[in-house]
Amino acid sequence: MTRPFKLGFLTHAPRQSDPARLYEDLIELFAAAEDLGFDGGWIAQHHLSGSTGGVPSPLVLLAAIAERTERIELGTGITVLPLEDPLRLAEDAAVLDALSGGRVQLGLGSGGANQSAFAAFGETWADKTESFRRRRQTLQALLAGATLDGTPSLRLEPPAPGLADRLWHSHATADGAAYAARQGNGFLLGTAVHNPETVQKPLAEAYLDAWSGSRAGARIGVIRAVFPAEDKAAAQAELADDLKPFAAWLTREGLAEGAPDTAEIIRLLNVHHGTVGDIIDSLGQDPALFQYADYFIPVVQSESSTLPQAIRRLEVIANQIAPAFGWHREH
């Protein structure tokens, strides 16, 4: 039976005081997700001390995860391309693909939540779109097996067959979405502050419009915050403290007026929460989700989530929520 979408999860790897504990937890999260039948796990890259995420080197961590799992796809959501040397990134991705039996899904973005890191890397935030495009070209050509520009015969070592077809972009503009399509790459949708109806749906349409091949080659991954609990009030209570820092940010971005309360923050960040029934209802009504998703990628952790909480939420998603939309485990 064909499945309507692949099921993944995305983690921003909220920091813990002990980094070693954090990385061991993430490895266990991937192993638990694989046991539950998840098709893929995606790690967001966050640089330096000013960030809230704890993984500056997703490919290094995924190499450890490759040893502790057998089947689950290993994704980045996203790697901040303007802060990477594209040749070194190509090498790292190719080595990870070899170490994992071809399980890499490489998500690329131009900045993500990493604006504060650009200066330390000697890069300019204003140049990030142009920088992304230049580096994407180098990266993708190398992964596809081309000789390196300016050399007669140097090619990527190790070769990474198929990896050039497992690239994804995240973009905030219709131009960017169309650009991803023209490169033959997948498109990741679902930045938390992007309204599904007014922002995400037009982005998905722009991507599909620009796709010149068959629909079968186009691929959209949709990221959604999903927090199952006893009921909506319980979910909001669990999330309240972690969401407080977002209030000032939403106000600064002009997305909220005054000081938004927890319920308003949850609405603005598009967090699906409550009972299994509540979540199935709200996901079903999401205008930029199952109509487009080839890969459904829930986020189940907030800053203070524990490993058992995250695993419990993944269980509910794999066993009850995703099956309501036709997904079933392949293995």
Binding site: I27, V60, R88, D92, L96, L99, E157
Partner: peptide, 23 residues
Amino acid sequence: HHFGSETGRLPSPLLLLAKASQT
């Protein structure tokens, strides 16, 4: 080694060692 120079096949030693950290 980069690009297979000297027939060395590993451009990303830290990734291989990350996997080795689990074995």
